[in-house]
Simulated assay, not measured.
Amino acid sequence: MNKNEEFTLAIEDMNEDGAGVGRLDGYIWFVKDAVIGDVVRARAMKMKKNYGFARLMEVLVPSADRVVPPCPLARPCGGCQLQAMSYEAQLRFKERKITNNLVRIGGFKEEELPMLPIIGMENPWRYRNKAQFPFGRDKDGNIIAGFYAGRTHRIVPCEDCLLGVEENQRILKIIKDFMNQYRISPYDEESHTGLVRHALIRKGFRTGQLMVCLIINGSDLPQRDAFVRMLLQVEGMTSISLSINRERTNVIMGKEIVNLYGPGYIEDFIGNVAYQISPLSFYQVNPVQTEKLYGEALAYAGLTGNEVVWDLYCGIGTISLFLAQKARKVYGVEIVPQAIADARR
């Protein structure tokens, strides 16, 4: 097989990155955007001794589980590797992947694994309570926001990701309008110039409270009062802040947070427990599934009220405070001071 040579391949599995996996004459091929059960025409792109990477050219026979991705940017964006697969098939794939890892890596026998069925979502869209959007310019010089294409730092313009909340689109438009109106430039990684690097947007699903934290390559934001005034047009806007990050780094958030409006945090609930979430705090991004997960964990723990529980890497204490409903005492251990401050409030 030579580079750019095309061939027909039956997709038997998918790897952790969501690429289809098939074998041809004993040689393993990875094909991005292919789905288990597809028969595809692929083009050889890169070959190693025992495996190679190929580009999907055409789906010759679609899998019974193949669907049209709801997001038109699913393929170029690369953030949702499984959108071409039905949600039911996605759940089966993930469940099988966990079982295989326990057998292959953990050394368990499959027949001995007490695996219960995976618990999915009723509606697997609009569930993310957090999104981070990089800013840049397109080839015509227009300010854009979106997500990085897979394995690159090239921004694919996308202001309404179907996994995120609907408010993201309006907030990003306001930020771009603000930047254009006051001639504030987006950050350029190569030259380390420009001011606006990313926007962090968070929403409390139960409270409706919104947070915007603008990550900047500088010590201050010009026309900050106008920035706040424009964002306050969005219903639910509760916290507006800046994150100072002047480093040449891929790390998004800086260590210094400058509060511009509100208490510096938003609130949300998991079950009956209220949490305060600041820009640097870790908080589960899928609150619907988090409540199910924690409920299952609490049930399996079988706490009687006499136990002492240690929650390591506790973040803002989502698990700690949830388990505290049934334990005698819970200790949370965390390295981020702001997260501990949020947990103690």
Rank of each mutant, 00 (worst) to 15 (best):
L280W: 01
I252R: 02
S281M: 03
G254R: 05
A301N: 03
Y300K: 13
Q276T: 12
A301Y: 08
E256A: 09
F269P: 07
V288R: 00
S239G: 03
E247Y: 03
V285L: 10
N259F: 08
A301G: 05
D268K: 09
Y261E: 05
N259Q: 14
V285C: 06
R246Y: 00
E307H: 10
V285E: 00
L260Q: 03
A301Q: 11
N250L: 13
V288F: 01
Y261V: 00
L293Y: 02
V308F: 02
N259E: 13
I244L: 15
T238C: 05
I240F: 11
L293S: 07
Y275G: 07
L312V: 15
G264E: 09
E247I: 02
I244G: 10
G302V: 03
N245M: 09
D268I: 09
R246A: 01
T249W: 08
G254I: 02
N250I: 07
N259R: 15
G236N: 04
W310M: 15
Q289N: 06
Q276W: 12
P287V: 03
N272H: 12
P279A: 03
A274F: 01
I240P: 05
G236S: 14
N286H: 01
Y294T: 06
L303G: 04
A297P: 01
V285R: 05
M237P: 00
S278P: 09
N259L: 10
T290R: 03
V285A: 14
V308H: 12
N272R: 11
E296A: 14
F269H: 14
N286Q: 02
A301C: 12
G264M: 07
Y261N: 05
T238Q: 11
S241T: 12
A299T: 13
K292G: 01
S239T: 10
G271S: 11
I270Y: 11
I277N: 10
V258A: 03
S239D: 15
W310F: 14
E235M: 10
I244Y: 04
N306R: 11
W310P: 02
I277E: 06
T238D: 11
N245T: 09
G254M: 01
Y283N: 07
F269V: 07
L242G: 07
M253D: 09
L293P: 11
G302W: 04
E247L: 12
I277A: 09
L312C: 06
Y300T: 00
Y261Q: 00
T304I: 06
E307Y: 10
E267W: 04
V251L: 13
